[in-house]
Design a protein around this nucleic acid. Structure first.
Length: 560
RNA sequence: UGGGGACUCGUCUAAUGGUAGGACAACGGACUCUGACUCCGUAUGUAGAGGUUCGAAUCCUCUGUCCCCAGCCA
């Protein structure tokens, strides 16, 4: 087994900023990040990039910390199931958060206090414009907005109204609290952004029915960061425009620390979508069978697909972190899981499209028990017994009556090595009335078990199972979920759903796997030799009916 | 046509005024009882035009292209 030498995590522009801050003692040597998911869906591979960045920094810097903080300010879309799945996925990925899970909702009382502070400073006001009116007053990208008629209310009146908003005196949508900044700002986020809205009758998963007003993200986030003494608040590029408001909040509220926001480019992965909204749509409309469908780029889906946490971490290291829009090829992810599983997965033989082979002169009653290594390089993975007898199955694609040029497998009258067993020669092809090949009659060379035949080279090696001993199992072959490299970026089409790949799942139910697999447990990973890496399905495999999911094919330089 | 960002091999990403490097992909070869793994080798890039400099991916000017922003979502 090749020992993985100490890998250094590649640096990036954010780590360089931290290095500088450390050198200048900006935060007294502290490095404290946070990962702030909204619990309104499952984590996906894009979140993994953020997790590896934030938790990775905490892991690599002396005294570094990273909080897991749920950004739970919109109870309408959030729930406890999502909270639990997010915690489980972060742990599964191999990271530990500092202290305990945090919730923005823990700070609702303090947030209310900060809002009142802004009111008292004349920097926030209660606005009674409707949502549509606010939009109208906001202006456009190229025209300045106009002041709300409620903008210059006396402070005492704002105080009173905001208190009564909290007390539940006003219906949803009737009033909001807004920051008083600049309706003519070229940055739309500074045109008196909303701080609080009224939401009656929703049960918040953490705070229950305690509140009927909820703070907005832009107000909540900088304050939560400050309250947790976060030093580097790392988010994605679309929040770059919000940073002036982030800094405004920090400047005008009496916060205990001064965090800074930095932005990096979110991950785009080809042939899939990495947007919670679209993933939610795939689940809710039934285009996949749940958040953990093995075709989904969610961590739960990748886990069921057989991906390892190490492979996903390696992927995040390889793609790096920058501010440039990117579109990462699937090949990078595939390479990571192949590299990990090649090293760690025991080998087994499984025939996906069985074709019967009878070794004619092999004794009818004889069964040989062949001892076979579980891994060609990692001897610590041990060995197993494989039964060999007169009737076998090989894969249909490993026999061709009219072989293409360069074909190395079995052909009429030709020889091939049965992996870990004998060299056989195809003597006869048996067909049914439709002319389909249903069986091969072969001879074998008894001198070729563990030895090469004399005087000739057998180039082809194919896998097989004993027809008498093999287990019938389901195998699920997964392919890319979309046929277009950038399904949600194609404007020539009405919906990204039009690019869905109808062949993203193929279920094979006649597969024959070697008997040693009978005791494999859900989540166990194998390389089915010459086919790919497979995992026993976590949810639907039973001892009576085993289900294997293909994680990824083997690299194939021949192209079947 | 407001504001904020970004442009380096096919893709991702380094180089922070001093030899444009790595990874994935591709291609060629070696090895092989997995057409895998491994090993060796090859090709491919600084968006464009000017300028500063002994020297520019890097600094300056202009141009172009792409992304984001007008939620009481995050």
């Amino acid at each position: 087994m090749n020992t993985p030498e100490q890998k250094t995590v590649p640096s990036n522009f954010i780590r360089q900023i931290i290095d500088r801050d450390l050198a200048t003692e900006r935060y007294g040597g502290r490095v404290h990040t946070r990962f702030p998911p909204e619990p309104n869906g499952y984590l996906h591979i894009g979140h993994a990039k953020s997790i590896c960045l934030n938790f990775g920094i905490a892991r690599d810097y002396p005294g570094g910390r990273c909080n897991l903080r749920f950004d739970d300010t919109n109870p309408h879309k959030e729930n406890e199931e999502f909270v639990r799945s997010i915690e489980a996925d972060v742990r599964w990925l191999g990271f530990q958060w500092h202290d305990r899970p945090y919730f923005a909702s823990d700070y609702f009382e303090q947030l209310y206090g900060f809002a009142m502070e802004l009111v008292d400073k004349g920097l926030a006001y209660v606005c009674e414009l409707s949502a549509e009116e606010i939009r109208g007053y906001r202006g456009t990208l190229t025209e300045p907005g106009r002041d709300s008629p409620y903008r210059n209310r006396p402070i005492a009146e704002n105080r009173d109204l905001f208190q009564r908003m909290r007390a539940g005196e006003f219906p949803d949508g009737s009033k909001v609290l807004r920051a008083k900044i600049d309706m003519a700002s070229p940055n739309i986020n500074l045109r008196d952004p909303t701080l609080y809205r009224i939401r009656h009758g929703v049960i918040h998963h953490q705070t229950g029915a305690e509140w009927c007003i909820y703070p907005m993200y832009d107000f909540t986030h900088p304050l939560s960061d400050a309250l947790e003494s976060i030093t580097h608040s790392i988010c994605t590029l679309e929040f770059e425009d919000h940073r002036p408001f982030y800094d405004w909040v920090i400047e005008h509220c009496s916060v205990p620390s001064v965090p800074r926001q930095y932005e990096f480019a979110r991950l785009n992965l080809q042939y899939t979508v990495v947007s919670k909204r679209k993933l939610t749509q795939l689940v809710e409309e039934g285009h996949v069978v749940g958040w953990d469908d093995p075709r989904m780029p969610t961590l739960a889906g990748l886990r069921r697909r057989g991906f390892t946490p190490a492979a996903i971490r390696e992927f995040c290291d390889r793609i790096g972190v920058s501010k440039a829009d990117n579109s990462v090829e699937m090949g990078v992810l595939e390479s990571c899981i192949r590299e990990d599983l090649d090293r760690t997965a025991p080998r087994a033989m499984a025939v996906l499209h069985p074709l019967k082979v009878v070794i004619e002169e092999y004794p009818e009653e004889q069964v040989e028990e062949l001892a076979v290594a579980n891994h060609p390089k990692a001897s610590d993975l041990g060995s197993r017994i494989i039964p060999f007898c007169r009737e076998l199955y090989i894969d249909r694609s490993d026999f061709e009556e009219i072989p293409p040029k360069g074909y190395k497998r079995l052909i009429p009258g030709g020889e091939v090595r049965l992996r870990n067993a004998y060299v056989i020669t195809c003597q006869r092809v048996i067909k049914n009335e439709q002319g389909e090949i249903i069986e091969l009659r072969c001879s074998y060379d008894p001198a070729t078990l563990g030895a090469n035949p004399e005087g000739r080279k057998v180039k082809g090696v194919i896998h097989w199972v004993s027809a008498r001993h093999a287990i019938n199992a389901d195998v699920r072959l997964y392919d890319r979920l979309f046929r277009h490299p950038n399904p949600d970026g194609d404007r020539s089409v009405n919906s990204f759903l039009e690019h869905l790949n109808p062949d993203s799942l193929r279920v094979l139910s006649h597969c024959m796997v070697e008997p040693s697999l009978a005791h494999a447990q859900p989540g166990d990973r194998f390389q089915f030799e010459r086919e790919g890496y497979f995992v026993v399905d976590l949810k639907e495999s039973t001892p009576q009916r085993m289900v294997f999911n293909r994680s990824v094919t083997l690299r194939d330089s021949w192209g079947r």
